[in-house]
Every structure is written in C-alpha cells, then in structure tokens.
C-alpha cells in the first residue's frame, strides 16, 4: 500500500493527472460525434457532384436505374421500391412472430423458461448475415419453389422472409422489455376483475406498453432497411420496379455492394451513386432511430 503525502506540489501534480485523464476519457466519448460527422460529411460531399449532373426531377421520377450503362438513367424509385418490398415482407413475419413471443415471455413464461428461451433466441441474431444469405438462396428459395413453381431463383420473398426471422429476437426482446416495464398492479387489477391472462395481455398490458412496442417496430424497420448481405445474395442484382415479392429486385444496399465489387474509378458519376444511395439509407435510418428512441424513452418516463 502506497501512501500519498499531501505536500502542495504532489497535490498539484495529482490534480493535473486527474484533469488529464478526464480530458482523455472525454475525447474517447467525443470520438462518437466525430464518426457521425465523418459519415455525414463524406455522404454529402460525394453526393453534391452527383446532383450537379443529374436533376432532382429525373432522380425522383425516372422509372429506370441504369447508372453503369452507356444509356444511363438515374431513377432512384426502383431501388427504393426494392428496399420497401423486402422490408415489408421481413416485417410482416418479424412483427407478429416477435410480438407473440414477447407476450408469451413477459406474461406467461415462468422465470426458468424465460431464462432458457431468451439466450437461444439471441443466437438467431448472432448468426452472420452472409450465412443467412446462403440459407435464403440455397435452402429457402428451393423450398418455396415447391409451393410457387413460378418463383424465380432470386426473389424478394425468400430474402425478406429470412431477414424477418433474423429480426424476430430483436422485436421480441424490445417488446418484452416494454411490457415488463408495466407495473404489476395493472396486471393485478385486471386479473382481479376476472379477466383471463390473454385479455389482460392484449387489453391492458399491450396498450400500456404501446410506445415501447411501437419503438421496437420502428427500430426493426430501421434494421430491415439497412440489411445488406441477405438481399444482395438472395434478392438479385437487377433493379426492378415491382411490388410483387416473388420477383427479383435490387435494394439500395445491394446496389452499393454490386458497385463496390466492380472496379469503378473514384470521381465518376457511377461511383458517386453509391454515396447517394448511402445518404438516402442514412437519412431513413436516422429518422427511424431517433423516432424509435424518443418513443422508447416515453415508456420509461411513464412508469418510473
């Protein structure tokens, strides 16, 4: 054990050292701001030259997206539609399945069952997305082709489905947190009135936790929009303006992958398109994330 002797100089030194450490720690925390600024700076500075070449009107209304062809068209609509359809398919699996699991874990399951099931579910989201891509392309698609024989080898249905399964644990754990934050007396009140567990869950707990649950759905939405490898592998690499999930189509993320795999020179319009797609992705997920976190905070404030 070392004893600190407190003469004036050593105290000064100690204060200085403490101050230095605090500044160092602050810089580490501040780095996260720099990352965001870096992202915004790069995305915007690479997108500006693009919008000098391409008018916003063409960008929004042209039905074709062929920046790498000789006859280049820059209509973002087909990529955005691809992203929307895969996201919709994913969420239409993830939200119902995740919500049911969450209600079960929060209201029905015993402590022991919950502690067993949750880690296993977490493994679902630990599987690397490239492995999910393999699974979607080489297992789920052949399986679905037995049900829909006209289904093409690349399609948004199987990519969306696998993405949905990947997001299930994310939805279920966030929803469960929200429902468990509802105080016990709400349950007791409802049960004392003669309601069954299901009635209590659906009519008392679920509505009381609604802002947390909506937050979970929005954060899941943000996940699905930004998911890359599954759609790049299983949904195809051709922009396709369609609402039919059985068809192949390219998403914003898959387009970035496709261009990055090629060897496009720095500074060309084709190269700038990936930053434009990145900017759209960033803006969409930014809005969802912020909105999701505000909603999540709302629930916490109500019951704490």
């Amino acid at each position: 054990m070392k004893f600190q002797t407190f003469n004036k100089n050593s105290k000064k030194l100690l204060c200085f050292k403490e101050r230095l450490i605090e500044v160092g720690l602050f810089l580490c925390a501040f780095l996260s701001i720099l990352i965001t600024l870096g992202i915004v700076f790069i995305l915007i500075s690479e997108s500006i030259p693009f919008f000098r070449e391409v008018s916003i009107r063409d960008f929004l209304t042209d039905p074709q997206w062929t920046p790498l062809f000789f006859d280049a068209h820059y209509g973002i609509a087909s990529l955005i539609l691809g992203t929307m359809v895969t996201t919709f398919v994913a969420l239409s699996f993830a939200i119902p399945l995740g919500s049911i699991i969450a209600i079960y874990l929060s209201e029905y399951a015993s402590h022991h069952v919950r502690e067993t099931i949750k880690p296993i579910l977490e493994l679902l989201s630990a599987v690397p997305t490239v492995v999910y891509g393999y699974f979607a392309l080489l297992f789920v698609t052949p399986l679905l082709q037995k049900i829909f024989p006209e289904l093409s080898g690349f399609n948004m249905l199987s990519a969306g489905f696998v993405m949905g399964i990947m997001i299930v644990p994310y939805v279920s754990s966030l929803c469960e947190d929200a429902m468990r934050a509802v105080p016990m007396y709400m349950r007791e009140g409802s049960l004392a009135m003669g309601a069954t567990k299901l009635q209590t869950s659906l009519r008392v707990i679920f509505p009381s936790a609604i802002s947390g649950i909506v937050a979970a759905y929005i954060l899941a939405l943000s996940r699905a929009v930004g998911e890359t490898m599954i759609v790049a592998i299983a949904a195809g690499m051709q922009p396709n303006l369609t609402l039919d999930p059985r068809e192949p189509a390219q998403t914003l993320t898959a387009y970035i992958v496709q261009v990055s795999l090629g060897d496009l020179p720095h500074g060309t319009v084709g190269y700038q398109t990936i930053f434009v797609c990145g900017l759209i992705l960033f803006l969409m997920t930014f809005v969802f994330n912020i909105f999701g976190h505000v909603m999540k905070k709302l629930t916490r404030e109500v019951y704490e």
Binding site: I39, T228, I256, I274, F275, L281, F282
Partner: peptide, 17 residues
Amino acid sequence: SNLAGVPSIVYGLMALG
C-alpha cells in the same frame, strides 16, 4: 444510440471516403 442503428454498409462508405 443512433450510431448503433446506422446500417453497417454506411460505415463502409464513410471508411471508403
């Protein structure tokens, strides 16, 4: 908390730049 939700491919674009 926002950074945790930024798609990983966007980090890739930032790193490229």
